[in-house]
Design a protein around this nucleic acid. Structure first.
Lengths: 205, 205, 205, 205
DNA sequence: TATGAATGAGGTTTCATTCAT
DNA sequence: TATGAATGAAACCTCATTCAT
């Protein structure tokens, strides 16, 4: 049953406008999901933000679940891509760790959705989302392994534990940095990096 | 709706029995909240665990929200009390930090509810819960301040940032330690403590 | 909502082209109604078949209900006309009955819509549709009455019961003949005619 | 997670009362389905008939679909059982056919739901329902085959076509017998039986 | 002390329909 | 002539909660 309408090439202009509106819808969804979590976010919340009625969302989105999954996928992929770029850049191991941690904490708010996705069990598309999360963790692990290969780190360095700790530091500050200016976030990120790299306590002489 | 049982004068024996049953109900609620989060947990889930029907819960509890709030309060207070005891115990600063971190990570699973409370916004009783959370953070801060007073830490030590980092490490591993035996959790806790105390990276000689 | 096109004075050529398109729309509607029934057929189903969007249908049709009613009317009238022609043709009573029954069963599939109309209560335009159905039944009755007049049938022949029985045989095989080749349908029609004319059971000698 | 409440043996009296109420609900559903068909029947229709709110139905029934499936199953099985009993009874082939046809037409109204199930495509539980329908047809076929074995029917008797014709006669009169008194239905059933057994037309001498 | 039955508010979703462009 | 966007009503369903027993 060929759908002539669907096949007819849409003018690129129109197509772009449609996509933009769709993005607006997904952004609104993301904002609400970030604010309330998946279960407590209602389609009405999302629609209100756009001046639409709940039913109208379905013109752009298949279901609440699908919207959530797509939002998370997009954010998660962006997150991963940014970290990958940072960790692959030239520079000392320390520099790259600091940069990665900083970007995570700076983007955390906007990408709060990913955080939700990681923390709520039994969510739609949970499997794929966990995969994205694991990938993120692997990125950190890989940079440590490269450090071992480059003899910047000892042979027995526990890459997994270190990655976990870094991730914990990244995520743990979400609440503390809410509504804080970037400068302050950066300051905290630097502190966290210091702790991770050199330890928080003064060294015994 | 006043609790009929509460109005009746009770023999101490009866009162105790009732309280025990109430505790069972709250424990069941805690377990379900921990497993599913507040919104996804149904009164039926809780009732099932006790061999009751949903309506019967209301003999012990005013509402789902009230149950959640109380569960969180109890767990949170227990959590705080344990940490306070540990931090107040004699021993070096390092020892106390290690002990505090360890107990947090070991109890995290059972007390997952607090974690939920901290992570889901717009939850009933959220205000009070945040207060408990802040208190927990203050406990860590206080031990650092004591460290400064005792000259174990430098004058300009950033107590708040350090407390935040420790909390982040404590909470960040929740997912990594799910379904793991205590031994392994302890191992990870020790690693995290090492990172925090001495830094993860090898020190330049 | 007045049809804008209808208000405009149209050239005969244009008018014809419009009507053709309208017929296409109604045909598509008929096909979908036949396949899914009235309630389960969506305007999107119909539009898809034509490469249109749902809203565009309303250029040709006032509403889904109106479309259904018109489709049924058209099909029903065609059905009636064909039966009338057959029953009015010269030939023995038996021949005409056989021919009528055959054409009904052969066209049943294509005209399934009428069947739907007859079977679903509380349908739009139901009254008119029932009228068409009654007319169809009357056509059969009339041929029997003519048979009485021509003394081919006894005076007390129950024309109504006979018409009902014939109709029942006609319609009852819809499911059995779905997806069957015309040959097989014709074979079954012949059998049914035999039963009706001579009885299914062997005659006592 | 053993459900003590569910395991606790309910008093037989209570259990029976519950079942009765459930039957009432299913009966109401059956009535509405029969009157409007599955798609057009709303949960509100059913609930209204019982003086309940729509949501309350779900105390007794899992879903609208499940209710429909169960209603059809029950009616269909009853229908089959009655026919089986009739066809298995002693008596001449003719007697049994007459009796079977009569009971079908008399019960048709009450069991209209089965008819719906047979006629609406793409219905929940459609597969199982078709199976029930096929079983019914087989019952008729089997009695003919027994007739062949007993030499009451010729070797080449077309059992399937005969069964189809009988079924068609049974079902075809549904609309004609609506709101008619049993006497009249019985009269029509007798006529139909005559037609099937001996033919409608006078025999050439 | 607990149950069975019911409520009612609210949630997601579908879909016929409208209308400016 | 047809589209894209949106509406709004109504559908099914869930669930915390109530209350007579």
């Amino acid at each position: 049953m060929a759908n002539r309408a669907a096949l007819r090439a849409k003018s690129p202009h129109l197509a772009k406008k449609q996509d933009r509106r769709r993005d607006e819808v997904l952004d609104a969804a993301a904002a609400v999901f970030a604010a309330k979590g998946f279960h407590d976010a209602t389609t009405r919340d999302i629609a209100d933000r756009l001046g639409l009625l709940p039913g109208s969302l379905y013109y752009y989105v298949e279901s609440k679940e699908a919207a959530f999954a797509e939002v998370c996928r997009r954010r998660g992929e962006g997150f991963n891509a940014r970290l990958a770029a940072i960790l692959a850049a030239p520079g000392s191991l320390e520099d790259r760790l600091r940069a990665g941690l900083l970007q995570h904490m700076l983007h955390n708010r906007a990408d709060l959705v990913s955080t939700i996705a990681m923390s709520e069990r039994a969510l739609p598309g949970w499997r794929d989302l966990r995969a994205l999360g694991r990938l993120y963790q692997r990125l950190w692990e890989r940079v440590f392994r490269a450090g071992i290969a480059a003899r910047e780190l000892p042979r027995d360095f526990d890459c997994r534990a270190a990655a976990l700790a870094l991730l914990a530091l990244c995520n743990g500050a979400v609440h503390a940095t809410e509504n804080k200016p970037p400068r302050e976030i950066a300051r905290l990120a630097a502190r966290f990096a210091d702790y991770f790299l050199n330890g928080a306590l003064p060294r015994p002489a």
